[in-house]
Structures are given as structure tokens and as C-alpha cells.
């Protein structure tokens, strides 16, 4: 600030105007695909390709028919895909949050070789691309019966742990040790210290990690596709893929409708947690 050229108020106002315009354009570009999906999900299939960016007209408007087609498509009910997606997302995220926050607390507070090794491994796991391990993984998952929606969260825990532990450890280290010592004197054992004192303080990080994991698991395609028995269990991304495959032709309108259905929960979730997301990200920025 100090070495900036002194600016007149007028030029500052002009700068602001330019910035506003630039960012508006960026925002529009950013949301355009989502808007396109929303628009096209209400258009008849034939109009999706020809008038992609146009609003639905009287002629092209399809009403709810795309949604109905999409949801009753093929021989797999959409609602079970939705249910499995939700189940896997909720279970995985919960498992990651609980296990990783506990592990991170231990790693951050216990000063031993073992912890350092574990921490390094966790960091390292973030660097290994999924594609490198996916085939051995799907075999292993099959053998260990991790191929159902109730057990696949364990696989997600393995993949999510790296980032989650990294973020939690950073935050735990910023919590003064004295607070936990005060808890120990006040009458908490390790378990109560963690759940009554540490966990509530971790709230901002819990939220930001939770959001990252929810987005990732909800949208993930490859892992459930490789691990789950596709005839029995499908998540929404897999179901969308099947809409495309089965007849050789693609019902784009129905696809858009389902994509919209898949996006809506994430958007609702984002809007309801917006306050915490910004807080959590900021907390991570300062303390991470």
C-alpha cells in the first residue's frame, strides 16, 4: 500500500468499474455450463443439439418429460442410484471426518517416530494418482468384500485420509496445548478431551474437509464403477453413463435432466453451508 502511486478518486472508481465488469464476465463463463444444463433439461431432445444456448421456446419446451424419462430410464430406478450415492457420500464423509480428526490429533500431539512415518505416508498418498492403483485396488476390494455401498466408504477413507489428515494436523497444531491440559485437569480422559474439547474447536476444519470430501465422493465416477457390482449398485454418475450407452443413441434432454438432479443437492448443500465454507477456508489459510 505504502509504495503505491497516489490515485485520484476518479481513477480508483474507474478501476473498480473495470474490475466489476471483468469479474462479471468471468462469473458468467463460470456458471454458463450449469445454466446450459438447466436450460436444456427442459428442452425436447431434438432441440438440445440445434439450439443449445437458447431458452426453451413454446415449440421446444419439454416440461417435466425429460426428468420422467431420465428417472425411469433403462432397467435401473433412478431413486436407488440417488440413494446409493447419498449413502456412500454420507458414510464416507462421516468416516473420514471421525477417523482422520482422531488420527490427526494423535499425530499432532504425540511426538514419536511412528507418527512422523504415518504423517509422511499420508502426505505421500496425496501424490499418488488413483489411476496408478485402481486395478490392484479393485481386485483387493473384491477379495475383501469392500464392493458394496456399505463397505466402499472404507476405500474412500483410504483415499481421503491424506488430504484430511494434512488439513487436520495443521489446525490441531495451531490449538494451544494448554487448553487440552486444562481439560485433563478438569477431569477429561483422552476420549472426552477429544470429543468435548478438541472436536468442537476443529469445527471450521471439519466443515471445510467435509465439503471437499462430499463434493469428491458425490461426483466420483471411476472408483464406484470399478469396485461396485454395477448390476446391483449404481451411483448417479454411473447411471448417467448408462443413459448414454445402452441404445447407441443418446437422449440428451434426459441426460441433462439427470445431471441437473445430481448437481442440485451439491448446490443446496453449498448455499446452506456458505457461511462456514468461507470461514473454514479462511481459517485454513491463516492457520494451515
Amino acid at each position: 500500500m505504502a509504495n503505491q502511486q497516489p490515485q485520484t478518486l476518479a481513477s480508483e472508481a474507474r478501476h473498480k468499474k473495470i474490475l466489476t465488469i471483468v469479474f462479471t464476465i468471468i462469473c458468467v463463463i463460470w456458471v454458463l455450463p450449469v445454466v446450459c444444463v438447466a436450460i436444456n433439461s427442459f428442452k425436447l431432445n431434438t432441440f438440445v443439439k440445434t439450439e443449445t444456448f437458447a431458452l426453451p421456446t413454446e415449440e421446444s419446451f419439454a416440461g417435466w418429460s425429460n426428468f420422467i424419462t431420465g428417472m425411469t430410464f433403462g432397467n435401473y430406478p433412478f431413486w436407488s442410484a440417488f440413494g446409493y450415492s447419498a449413502l456412500i457420500t454420507v458414510l464416507s464423509t462421516a468416516l473420514i471426518l471421525v477417523c482422520c480428526s482422531m488420527a490427526a490429533w494423535y499425530i499432532a500431539r504425540v511426538d514419536s517416530k511412528f507418527c512422523k512415518v504415518i504423517y509422511t505416508l499420508c502426505i505421500f498418498s496425496m501424490v499418488v494418482p488413483f489411476q496408478m492403483v485402481m486395478f490392484t485396488l479393485s481386485k483387493t476390494a473384491d477379495t475383501l468384500k469392500l464392493n458394496t455401498p456399505w463397505t466402499i466408504p472404507i476405500v474412500y477413507l483410504g483415499f481421503g485420509a491424506g488430504l484430511a489428515i494434512f488439513m487436520f494436523v495443521g489446525f490441531v497444531k495451531s490449538i494451544p496445548l494448554e487448553i487440552e491440559e486444562a481439560a485433563a485437569i478438569d477431569g477429561c480422559g483422552p476420549v472426552r478431551t477429544f470429543f468435548l474439547v478438541v472436536l468442537p474447536m476443529l469445527k471450521p476444519t471439519l466443515i471445510s474437509v467435509g465439503i471437499l470430501e462430499i463434493m469428491w465422493v458425490w461426483n466420483d465416477y471411476l472408483l464406484p464403477y470399478l469396485v461396485l457390482d454395477i448390476n446391483q449398485y449404481r451411483t448417479i454418475p454411473i447411471q448417467i453413463q448408462y443413459l448414454k450407452g445402452s441404445y447407441g443413441t443418446v437422449d440428451l434432454g434426459a441426460t441433462m435432466a439427470i445431471i441437473l438432479m445430481a448437481i442440485i443437492p451439491v448446490i443446496v448443500f453449498y448455499l446452506s453451508c456458505q457461511k462456514y465454507i468461507i470461514k473454514g477456508v479462511a481459517a485454513g489459510a491463516v492457520k494451515g
Binding site: P176, E178, I179, E181, A182, A183, V197, P200, M201
Partner: peptide, 8 residues
């Protein structure tokens, strides 16, 4: 404690 160590 010197830093008070209150539960925030």
C-alpha cells in the same frame, strides 16, 4: 494457565 486456556 498464563494463556488462560479457556474453552473457546
Amino acid at each position: 494457565f498464563q494463556s488462560y486456556a479457556l474453552y473457546p
